[in-house]
Design a protein around this nucleic acid. Structure first.
Lengths: 326, 326
DNA sequence: CTGAAAGCGCTTACAG
DNA sequence: CTGAAAGCGCTTACAG
């Protein structure tokens, strides 16, 4: 029966028929917990993440660790590797060093570059399933993308900014981490879409790049605000919101701009509570981690992925529905 | 060892010491899946819900059924009883008929009345754990409340309505299911709090009651809108949003009011997509069901509840972050 | 009070 | 190609 359920070769089709019929008649539901218990094999996954120090990544990494720790019955081991974001060669080296004999799957969050694309193709050729995480690699042949629809997330941010500025006319400063990350590009795109179509009185300015650095983010934001003191909104696409908040305070504007940010962290929570940020668009890092692990396991077992279950929600947080954070 | 882990009586404290020390040294984590496998006992829970036909309750009931079906290894059986909402006696009878020999736990969603309070006390006395669901029974001695902070949910609705009306002055029609449900009372209270403090230009009107009936909801809403044709907002605290939408269309107002609703369903999704509803405040019915089951199991096993895990989020949905619904 | 056996629903070698 | 045994980490009676 095991051979049928797991679709292993070498079973006569008559037998397959019989077993499937019996399954239907009895309403059999396979006990995955017992299956995991018996199956002694452990999954060894690698997560490759950028090496910036932001709280979002820390929370994602912690999420992974907690899931592994709390569900030992799933017998999965994870190694997380942080790779410098700008160093394309090191990323390529790291990926090429992954030994198929020692790794059962890879989850990767990185900018979309030819190097990454080729590395993914190479890994897949060596039989290792790959999922892109948070920021997609749609032109590689990754098995799956684990993350939100970032165009929709950008549209959500645009709508909130448009409605919160209440029909007033004005410029919007847009601060982005970098212009190569797919998630950043898609959010900016969705934002422009919705603002162009529904809030024509708003004028989004060209993105300024914060480069994963709070101090640099503060500087470029401050410069943008000084050049546009009449700005009525700031859209933080994924940059250090701490730096942006400091720039807003330093710019000493005639009126406080509406500030929309991405990713709920300790910092953005505090700024939300203090009324500096008006809304945060976020994704649950625990869900991201769980989804990545589930998909990777499914790919290893050549089991189908339940799409509806892996659909990560775009969450909106304002001061009033701020969850209690540990 | 089992006797120590499960804190059963009749173990010498020396032994307990030794076992605990060994646990710490080895970093032992108990495999609950294996434990469930071995433990043949099945949990038999009863869910008592109001009998209205709304999609929210249907989705909650379906959520429970799916969880049970997909995780047979948890060996839990659930019987759902729908009780007419206005019939206090029938509710009391239903609860008193629950046999402690056949029921291991109860989850109840009902108005807060003396009858319910006494029934809960009675059940607890007979050793059955009880959780209140969606709408709390804080004055009973229920073991736990599974649901959102409804005051905060009302504050969230108020803030969104205030910001979406963009500083304009005007009245707000408030439509409520009934005035005895704790969840309704708390939402209305949170709404008034935040509007009074932060949006003084808004004037919320006294609640009109929809009584779980779409047609009646439409009638009372229409009457309220006709009496206040200058209303700039409608707050649907938990009533049939279909009825409200029809009333808004029928009232033929000079300007479309901002409409904030609770609970994402097929109906409210459609109205959100069509631009009739501006935002929906919601709680995930799957999470509610899972949390209720987890808490009930914990109470049966006299195991601690992990509060952070049982914290149900207040979610905000606008057209742009509407999840795909099956 | 404690030890050792049997069994939960599965999978994995190993025989046939 | 298929059957039957052993074992995954636990709990539950049952002996001692």
């Amino acid at each position: 029966m095991d051979r049928v359920l797991n679709e292993r070769p070498g079973v006569r089709s008559v037998t397959i028929q019989k077993v499937h019929q019996a399954i239907d008649e009895l309403g059999y539901v396979r006990d995955t917990a017992a299956a995991n218990l018996a199956r002694q094999k452990t999954y060894r996954f690698v997560f490759v993440l950028p090496d910036w120090k932001g709280q979002f990544l820390a929370s994602l990494e912690q999420g992974i660790a907690e899931i592994i720790h709390n569900a030992p019955q799933n017998r999965t081991e994870v190694r997380t590797i942080r790779v410098p974001n700008h160093d394309h060669t090191q990323l390529a080296v790291t990926l090429s060093e992954l030994d198929p004999a020692e790794v059962d799957g890879l989850a990767i969050m990185a900018k979309e570059t030819p190097v990454v694309r080729d590395s993914i193709a190479d890994l897949r050729k060596r039989g290792i399933p790959v999922v892109s995480l948070v920021s997609d690699q749609p032109n590689s042949d990754r098995d799956h993308f684990v993350g939100i629809d970032n165009v929709a997330a950008g549209r959500t941010a645009g709508t909130l900014l448009g409605r919160f500025t209440g029909g007033k006319q004005g410029k919007v400063v847009v601060v982005i981490t970098n212009k190569q990350s797919r998630d950043m590009i898609e959010r900016r795109h969705g934002f422009d879409q919705v603002v162009g179509a529904e809030f024509p009185h708003l004028e989004p300015l060209p993105s300024v790049e914060g480069q994963e650095d709070p101090v640099h983010t503060e500087q470029v934001t401050l410069r943008a605000l000084q050049q546009n003191p009449d700005a009525i909104g700031v859209y933080s696409v994924g940059a250090s919101v701490q730096g942006i908040a400091r720039a807003i305070a330093a710019a000493d504007l005639p009126q406080r701009p509406v500030l929309i940010d991405h990713e709920l962290t300790q910092n953005s929570s505090t700024l939300l509570r203090d009324g500096v940020i008006d809304a945060v668009i976020t994704q649950n890092t625990g869900h991201l981690a769980r989804s990545a692990l589930r998909v990777l396991r499914a790919k290893c077992d050549k089991t189908p992925v339940i799409e509806s279950q892996e659909n990560i929600r775009i969450e909106i947080v304002i001061r009033e529905n701020l969850p209690f954070m540990k």
